[in-house]
Amino acid sequence: MNSFVKNNSHLFTGIIVILLLAIIVSAQVLYDHSSSMFGKESFRFTIKHRSIIDPKIVKHLAFGFDNVLADYYWISAVQDFTGWDHKEDFYLNYFKNISVLDPEFSYPYLFAILTAPTEKDKASLDKVAEIAELGMATLPNNWEIPFYLGTMYNMFAKDEAKALHYIEIAAKTEGVPSVVPLTYSSITAKKLLGKKTARELMSVIRDTTKSETIKAMAEEGIVLSDITVMLENAIIAYKAKHRTYPKTIENLTAERFVVIPKEITSRFDIIINQKNGEVSIVGK
């Protein structure tokens, strides 16, 4: 037996290696199965937290690699956006660090403005505005940053004063497309912001951006804006019939006041303000 093993030592070595590998792979498969790593729900994970270097010190630790570090944070922000629970601060911290490391990197400002504000944190838009202000100071000829910020103050925070302030900055930027000052004039002439102009503002973004991603976000914003208007009209009709506001969206759909695509209801929560019938569409 011993001599057989000695004479075929390479074969036995190979068999042992393959056996050990098979055990290792099996253990990994069982582990993945137990923690649903590759299950259908696996990609709807939530990131609880991320450890990100404080913006005050990150620049001092870059040692000439500022732009690459900014890119790293950008990619991290993009990758983590799906799993962000819209409560934790880490998502905004990515953009803070990007703005510190490479203030001229303009795209993240726009992305942050459109994705960071959340109903779960009322101050989130103001926090984004702090970051965007740095972008505006570094890139005075970039009209998109103030315009997008103004749009979000209008649509999201319903803060007309701030919305107008930023849209005005955008309208007065050198080299801005003519549609922007025209839109600004139109808004100030009509003296209204709000839902009707939300669509207009999002349309400007959709029509002027070169980014397919932002275009898609703007189109979604337009769709949500239209749905909001449609819902509020339906709520007015419901109230006229029942003398009270519907408690949930199901009250409206059950009586066929409105039909909402499943795609919207699966991704968003629709909240009806019982005091004034205003609709909020919040991401799940």
Binding site: G64, F65, N67, V68, D71, W74, I75, V78, Q79, F105, Y107, F111, S211, E212, T213
Partner: peptide
């Protein structure tokens, strides 16, 4: 690959990471 996951910042990623790798 990095460029493909960067959302329309592909050339920037290639230039940044490429020049940094050389450096």
């Amino acid at each position: 690959f990095i460029a493909s996951i960067s959302i329309e910042q592909d050339v920037r990623m290639i230039v940044d990471f490429g020049t940094s790798a050389i450096y």
